[in-house]
Design a protein around this nucleic acid. Structure first.
Lengths: 314, 314
DNA sequence: ATAACAGTGACAAATGTTGTCACTATCATA
DNA sequence: TATGATAGTGACAACATTTGTCACTGTTAT
């Protein structure tokens, strides 16, 4: 085994173990302890964050920020990573802002000038048109980490000018219409709530509360799990030929397009109560090319909205 | 200079040069040709796509797919790359689908099981709610490459059931409301046109046409450059306090929020004619919290849309 | 006090790398 | 056809780097 290979495999092994001793590694790799000490010195110089303790029950640990063995990407792969990071730029706040800066730096050190030019040119030649976020939102990373690790957090949360303290366990985070939301289990209400991330004022880990098991709850199934079936309803919308063409190029969860021979069609499926407002404006944008048949609530909401706007201009 | 350092710098140097000889590299690095031959053999084994020709005017070339020197990312950086790729998943077609697969593979080879679990868990705990694309669209990469390199393309394009041949030079690509668009210079019309990418049936490079210089035209400035100033108009929209709060969390280009002491406010700025339909439905969604004062066209379009929908339900 | 751990420096032995040499092969050009 | 400019191979001595052994130091929980 070459030295370079041994170092790579050592990075992976130390990443895997919580603690380890020099003796352990020497046996694992079939080299002397002295060589392991030298290798660990070299990993340290490479940026692997090693921490050692002497004495009984001593040994080595890796600090939190683990380093991967070096990976050789192709330049197309590097460009595509820049593309993906670029695609996120209209989100003013992301859980990984710091990481994206360091990633860009690491790549730029290794890219030849002509590929850097290509990437710079690409930034002006790709766009994703959607809502741009305006507000800077702290704590996204903590919320996402807490959701992944199933940690309990104590937050201060602002509603209607007042700040209250809440103890929550996040399920995840999602971005919608310019805002970030965090559905969580709220220990205060002993129920599930959705929190707006821009209203969270402070955040800290709360280890006095035992987390509940949310491993079977995800963003996708959170509503069905939470016994909110009453809030789901069937939808049926008639579409003209043009309406069909417009709807055809997008994919809404749980909405299905049925086409007729003449080119017209209809949408059927299941929607949730909290989507009523959004869907009413969505189908208003179809004009005469969509006609909502049910649910009643969606028709009423649409009419209500129409009348409110009409009153503005008459 | 250590061997590892020499190999890294050699990767960067060969990426930079179109062609090179063993002698050239030997002089550059101050080692023997025999050593260079060995090094090139080792780079080859690392995956650097080298290609050699013997005889006068011989030497080495790099095949298209250039490989970067290995980079050691932290695990947080790896997770953030997965996050960015995950954020793109509702785009059914991207210019870099193939690359994302190979990137994921390369990382997975080097990640310890617990970080892989973290990434898997994260996929279910972050969401970006927006329009999901339905249609698979080929040629995105070719269009983007052509825009970056300023190449002329011959495409077959389908409109209204007919397919025509066009010779274009793309400016860039953008995603909007479930579709990909490609604004280009059209040699047939001798003017600028926007093409829907899903309607492009085939694509090939056309080297018989000399490209024009589009380096000063980007997605951002394409409309102002293209002498379409007549199509821009001033906007003024009165907002209630609640309207202000809703508008505040997003950022539209060229739209500026002005607040009053009582919490209400107004929007002023400049819009473009092709945004009229979208903005009318956007402000309809505000209900009674937004009142358009100008432009006249936007008010009329809003009224028109409202009346069309109203006729559906009365 | 003891054992189990990390750690250091020195040096000979083992291993890896390098350059030289002699040779082969290919190919464009005069 | 000969020549010169290129890539390429294998062998081996010289040189460089790595490794393991050894003797020693220091820390810490029991």
């Amino acid at each position: 085994m070459s030295k370079a290979k041994r170092l790579n495999e050592m990075i992976m092994m130390v990443n895997r173990k919580k603690r380890f001793t020099v003796r352990e590694l020497a046996e694992e790799f079939g080299v002397s302890k002295r060589t392991i000490l030298r290798d660990l010195q070299e990993l340290s110089e490479m940026g692997v964050p090693l921490y050692s303790e002497v004495g009984p029950n001593g040994g080595y640990q890796i600090l939190n920020e683990r380093v991967l063995p070096p990976i050789a990407f192709s330049e197309d792969e590097a460009v595509s990573i820049f593309f993906a990071i670029h695609a996120l730029r209209h989100y003013l706040s992301l859980p990984f802002d710091i990481e994206y800066e360091s990633i860009v730096k690491k790549f730029y050190l290794n890219l030849s000038g002509d590929i850097r030019d290509t990437i710079d040119r690409m930034q002006d030649r790709v766009d994703f048109q959607s809502i741009h976020q305006q507000e800077k939102i702290p704590f996204l990373k903590q919320l996402l980490d807490a959701a992944i690790q199933q940690d309990v957090l104590k937050i201060s949360y602002e509603t209607k000018g007042k700040t209250s303290s809440r103890t929550i366990q996040p399920i995840g985070i999602y971005a919608k219409e310019g805002k970030w939301y965090c559905p969580s289990y709220c220990f205060f209400r002993e129920d599930y709530r959705v929190f707006r991330c821009d209203r969270i004022q402070s955040i800290e880990r709360d280890e006095t509360i035992t987390p509940i098991d949310l491993s079977h709850i995800t963003l996708k199934n959170r509503f069905s799990i939470l016994n909110q079936k009453k809030e789901r309803m069937e939808i049926y919308v008639e579409l003209t030929k043009q309406g069909v063409e417009t709807f055809q190029s997008v994919n809404w969860p749980n909405l299905f397009l049925r086409k007729r021979i003449d080119g017209s069609g209809y949408i059927e499926g299941v929607i949730e109560k909290h989507d009523i407002h959004f869907l009413s404006t969505y189908f208003i944008s179809y004009g005469e090319h969509a006609m909502i048949k049910k649910p009643f609530e969606l028709i009423e909401r649409t009419k209500e909205l129409i009348n409110k706007v009409l009153n503005q201009y008459n």
